[in-house]
Amino acid sequence: MPKAPAGTLYRGREGMWSWVAHRVTGVLIFFFLFAHVLDTALVRVSPDSYNRVIDTYKTPFVNLMEVGLVGAVLYHALNGVRVMLIDFWSKGVRYQREMTWAILTVFVLVMAPGAYFMTKHTLEAIFGSAS
């Protein structure tokens, strides 16, 4: 890759890192989608084989990875909106940095309750109040 000229405002700052994160989350989601279509296809094999595979999603460790997956999708979705605003909104480029912090704020506000409800059963199983 060619070296960026010195003094660029973009390299290494919010703009670059949000782009890196967009790529990384995009690839993660792509590979999960591959696995997810295969596991869902088991409904055509038998209810039992589908249920057995879906049961692995309910184990504590995979449940935690699920929070990561939902986080990746949510970030990719929010940053995608930011990218579209940069492309189509006349002031999008000027406010790209502010929009990065705005979507991160929304991300935290949505993920906090989201992660709680996603892992509620796992937390109760580990800490002993599950029925």
């Binding site: 209810p47 249920n51 999708v73 409800f117 059963h121």
Partner: peptide, 20 residues
């Protein structure tokens, strides 16, 4: 996708309710 994830992984016990 976000609506799909909300229904499947967050609401009504999250992924615990999902089966055939």
């Amino acid at each position: 996708v976000l609506w799909h994830l909300l229904i499947m992984t967050v609401l009504d016990g999250g992924v615990q309710k999902v089966n055939f």
